[in-house]
Design a protein around this nucleic acid. Sequence first.
DNA 1: CTAACTGCAAAGTGTTTGCACTCTT
DNA 2: AAGAGTGCAAACACTTTGCAGTTAG
Lengths: 150, 150
Amino acid sequence: MQPPAATPSMDELRRTFREAGLSFTHQRMVLYRAVQEMRSHPSPEAIYEKVRGEIPSISLGTVYKNIRAFLDAGLLREVSPHHGTLRLETNLEEHHHLVCTRCKTIVDLEETDLEPVRLKCQLPGGFRVDRYNVEFRGLCASCAKMSELS
Amino acid sequence: MQPPAATPSMDELRRTFREAGLSFTHQRMVLYRAVQEMRSHPSPEAIYEKVRGEIPSISLGTVYKNIRAFLDAGLLREVSPHHGTLRLETNLEEHHHLVCTRCKTIVDLEETDLEPVRLKCQLPGGFRVDRYNVEFRGLCASCAKMSELS
DNA sequence: CTAACTGCAAAGTGTTTGCACTCTT
DNA sequence: AAGAGTGCAAACACTTTGCAGTTAG
């Protein structure tokens, strides 16, 4: 269901890091490989636990610093643009979201603004869906304008 | 674009709270109305700021406790099931998510598993979409089984 | 040799909890 | 009167930051 997650060779990694402007350290390499091997959308803590098997002396701070470096370099992404603070929803109807990834503004789209989403495949065994929601990510008008100026 | 957000009358609120098993207090009422008036998916902090205009002595703790009460009662929802902890994404391709709201597991669906999402309307002025992602929420097989037992 | 990275500990956020007091029912 | 809710402060969980020592380029 996922591409085979071919663990990249040392040399490929060297290049990847260099292109991202990151120097090649043992910790960094092990961290990167660990995340690639975990197909499970891991948390920093989960990555830390896994990597400790290989580098027992690694610190959680290093894990966080490297995750941030990977994110900034576009080597990794965050699942949700709203981790960090709780955001509340008043509209209990089925609806969708337009999210500005810069200022975090959320705008609702009504369900009827979209053609219904249709699955072409079966869902993984036994998963019971309650509802779905489409999230469009991008920049709102004012953030888009600001980013053009730079 | 949103239903008129008719601020509920005192009596309607009394009933709403009673049905939710919540007693009717001044703070609660002002909080609830404030959230309904803010069509902006507010954070707890934003709600606190707004409500302080009306009840300067209210505490942030009370705001959090009431938000939790509203969430538990289904009067409010969280925008993201993953606020709280950073979750990382290895798959940089366009794809979608199946999320178990109980154990927070995330499973990827490939883009080709879905018919393309089609908008029936214009996006609000000037919004620039980079990508979109469909999030199916529900219970995974094992969590579904566990919840049947209770 | 210099700049970047690591480990550790301290500081920051955002959120929950415990407790004495007050208000709703 | 009993139970629920409030305010305040302390405790927590998650994440970032600062710094001295180490390593990569």
